[in-house]
Computed example of a mutant assay.
Amino acid sequence: MDVAWWDRWVYGSEPDDPERGPQPGHAYVELVGGPLDGMLLDVTGWPPQDVVDGALLMSEHGAFGPGGRSDYAPAELGLGSEAGEVGRFVWQGDVP
Rank of each mutant, 00 (worst) to 15 (best):
G34Y: 05
G34P: 04
L57I: 07
P35M: 01
H61C: 15
S81K: 02
P24G: 12
W46F: 15
L41S: 02
P24N: 13
L40H: 02
Q23M: 14
V51C: 11
G38T: 05
V10N: 02
A4T: 10
S70Q: 04
P22R: 14
Q49G: 10
G62I: 02
E19H: 15
A75F: 01
V95P: 00
S13D: 08
V90Y: 01
P48F: 11
G34C: 05
S70V: 10
D7W: 02
W5D: 09
L31K: 04
L57D: 05
G65H: 04
S70I: 01
L57S: 08
R20K: 14
A27T: 12
A55Q: 11
G65D: 02
L41C: 03
E14T: 11
A63G: 08
E76W: 06
D37W: 00
G93M: 07
L41A: 02
L40K: 03
H61M: 12
A55M: 10
V51H: 03
G67T: 07
M1L: 13
R8T: 04
G54S: 09
V10M: 05
D71I: 13
G54T: 09
G78Y: 02
V32K: 06
E76D: 11
G93Y: 08
D16K: 10
W6I: 15
Q23T: 14
G54I: 09
V90M: 04
G93E: 07
L57Q: 05
L77Q: 07
G65L: 01
S59I: 09
F89D: 02
D53I: 00
G54W: 09
W46T: 05
D16C: 07
S13M: 08
Y72Q: 06
L31G: 02
L79W: 13
Q23G: 11
S13Q: 10
P47K: 09
P74F: 06
A27L: 15
E82Y: 12
T44L: 08
G54V: 08
P74V: 07
L31I: 04
V3W: 08
V51Y: 04
V43C: 08
V51I: 15
Y11I: 07
R8H: 08
L41R: 04
G80Q: 01
A4P: 06
E85D: 12
L79A: 14
D94S: 11
V29W: 01
Y72W: 07
G68T: 01
P96W: 13
V51M: 11
E85R: 12
V43S: 07
Y72A: 05
M58H: 14
D7P: 00
A75K: 00
D7Y: 04
V51D: 05
W6A: 13
E19K: 13
R88Q: 13
V95M: 06
G21T: 09
V95F: 03
R69D: 01
P48G: 10
F64D: 00
P18V: 10
G12Q: 12
G65I: 04
A73E: 15
P15I: 04
V3P: 01
S81L: 02
R8E: 07
D94K: 06
W6N: 15
G45R: 06
P18E: 12
S13R: 14
M1S: 12
D53E: 12
P48R: 12
V3K: 14
G84V: 07
V86G: 03
A83R: 12
D17V: 03
L57M: 05
P15R: 03
R20W: 06
D16N: 11
G12W: 06
L36M: 00
V86N: 10
A4S: 14
G54M: 08
